[in-house]
């Protein structure tokens, strides 16, 4: 049995890493992974653990001397059980190859946890146990050496590929968040505008109806007063006219009498 281990970090927060873990494949550096399937997934509310069983399908070129032992098929299957522990903030992935495992067994444990010194960084720890079961010691060594070397190469490729996915998802999330924000602001502005418009409309209609009422009141008052005044004037005019007529007729009768008296010489006689 041989061990492989490595440790490095990602410049992304732990939560981002765990979310990206579900969307890790396909990425251009891990083209050997051709399928990822969720076989079982359970949430444990008491411990806040999400446990997932996945089937990872790989298409990997196998060296000729090894494929003679294993048969020609270069599709291999890996089973992975992972746990997201929200309380302890760890993502642990344990995986085992299911193909060719009578010859070679690879058991890998990967743990992601937040960097205690920097919450925007995530520490990645990978450990693998590689065991070859072939009967010749030297063949075993050779297979193990090849596998360790291969594991190291793939681990590096995996990291680079994952970085690519993280970069893509991060910008996508920022965009989405920004869009959501803009949409929210727009909604608020629209609502405010609608409120203002409806308020203005309401006020305008109140003012208009008030103006209408006042106008009609003024008109009816003016009309009332005008007709009263006209009537009064006409009444007064007619009374004045009748007075004038009266006076005229009185004047006429006085003039008549004066004329008669003058004609009759009354003045003369009385002066005598």
């Amino acid at each position: 049995m041989k061990l492989y281990s490595s440790e490095h970090h990602f410049d992304y927060p732990w939560t981002t890493i765990t979310a990206a873990n579900w969307q890790k494949y396909p990425n251009e550096m891990s083209s050997h992974v051709i399928g990822v399937d969720v076989l079982r997934r359970e949430v444990y509310p008491e411990t806040k653990i999400l446990r997932t069983e996945r089937l990872i399908t790989c298409k990997q070129p196998v060296p000729k001397w090894l494929s003679m032992l294993t048969g020609g098929d270069n599709i291999s299957y890996v089973r992975e059980v992972s746990e997201v522990d929200l309380v302890n903030r760890t993502l642990t992935l344990r995986s085992n190859n299911m193909t060719m495992n009578h010859l070679l067994s690879v058991y890998e444990v990967v743990v992601y946890r937040p960097d205690p010194e920097d919450p925007n960084r995530t520490i990645f720890k990978q450990e693998a146990e590689i065991t070859a079961y072939a009967s010749f010691r030297r063949l075993c060594d050779k297979i193990e050496d090849f596998s360790v070397e291969r594991f190291g190469q793939n681990a590096l490729k995996g990291k680079i590929g994952f970085e690519g996915v993280l970069h893509y998802l991060d910008s996508e999330w920022i965009e989405n968040r920004y869009l959501k924000h803009v949409r929210k602001e727009l909604n608020v502005v629209t609502q405010e505008a609608t409120e203002i418009v409806s308020d203005v409309t309401k006020k305008t209609s109140v003012i208009l109806s008030e103006v209408n009422e006042l106008t009609s009141e003024v008109i009816s008052e003016v009309a009332g007063k005008t007709s009263g005044a006209i009537q009064e004037v006409s009444e007064k005019t007619s009374s004045v006219l009748s007075e004038v007529t009266d006076i005229t007729s009185k004047t006429n009768s006085v003039l008549y009498q004066v004329t008669r008296l003058v004609k009759g010489g009354i003045f003369r006689g009385s002066n005598d």
Binding site: L39, R40, R51, E53, L55, R79, E80, V81, S82, E83, T92, R94, S95, N96, M98
Partner: peptide, 14 residues
Amino acid sequence: MEEAREEASFENSG
């Protein structure tokens, strides 16, 4: 699949 599940069960975190 059955053999793999027996070897490293889901209940035992794999």
